[in-house]
Design a protein around this nucleic acid. Structure first.
Lengths: 156, 156
DNA sequence: AAATTGAAGGTCAAAGATGGTCAAAGGAAA
DNA sequence: TTTCCTTTGACCATCTTTGACCTTCAATTT
């Protein structure tokens, strides 16, 4: 029996709230932590890992009395986003988790379909790039960039 | 007197579970190892030798809290040609020219479309797999097989 | 106005929870 | 005997949870 991760539960909870509020949401860290009976910093963990820029979200916050955390689901122009990925975001080396987030994100944006996403993720997995870890990130970056170029070149 | 090997017993156990769950299954390595009173790494051995891609299985996993191992039996009835490629044709190492031919071929057969072919070819190019030539063929074989599995797994 | 205080949120590293890899040792088969 | 397959264990990589300590902001008090 696989125990659901608390982080996943919190992620779903926030996503439900986001849907109800059209992609923009303010919440209070301590309140949420109390609701889920977890350390407040776990909320930061969820935000950092599940609502990252690579997953298409933007976070702002304010401390002090009346403080809050604002989560915004981003809506970027497709071509601009792909070029940003290729020219800036990916760089010379990248981790599996990052590429996985990016591919999921461009699928959710409708830039690629489910099968194309599966195809891309398959080529980016650690097991597939079975070489020393320090080189793996480099090959992964090459691969993702090459595939994104292929997408741009084939889209019309 | 032939003593059944533990690996064979674990193999059968997993296959039984797979049948009960229609070819797809998630399990926990430590739990299984504890059940059979063996080293956790023996589970990896069983997976590597009995549930390999060449035998028609696909394995995914995740570490950390709430981690798991997912085993998927690839459908043997459908996709004869893709299965043949994965299990026999590709092997442990393959050249760019061969993969290019294979991808073109499955596109012409209508198994994948133009964009998917472009995506696959992008990930298989020499320039993308920028490592010593002797290793490159191995990574390319891994990559192509993994992408074919993705195709099989996504056509539902 | 300046200082104080309490109410948020932020950071980071350690501990915990999984799975992965590899090589050596052990055994069975040829 | 030699080779190949299996079993084990030490060490590694990744992901999650927790807690101690830090920073910022608004309201209140001097």
């Amino acid at each position: 029996m696989i125990v659901a991760r608390l982080s996943d539960i919190i992620e779903e909870f926030i996503k439900t709230l986001l849907k109800q509020s059209e992609g923009e949401l303010e919440l209070q860290r301590n309140e949420l932590a109390e609701y889920f009976e977890c350390a407040p910093s776990q909320i930061n963990y969820v935000l950092a890992t599940r609502f990252s820029l690579d997953r298409g979200y933007h976070i702002e916050s304010r401390r002090g009395g009346g403080g809050f955390i604002r989560i915004v689901k981003l809506d970027m122009d497709k071509d601009d986003y792909l070029l940003y990925l290729i020219k800036q975001r990916i760089g010379t080396s990248i981790s599996w988790q990052e590429t996985d987030d990016i591919v999921t994100n461009i699928m959710e944006k409708g830039i690629i379909n489910k099968r194309e996403a599966a195809l891309m993720k398959a080529a980016l997995r650690d097991k597939v790039i079975a070489i020393p870890a320090n080189l793996r990130g480099i090959i992964r970056a090459n691969t993702l960039k090459a595939m994104l170029v292929a997408i741009i070149s084939t889209q019309g």
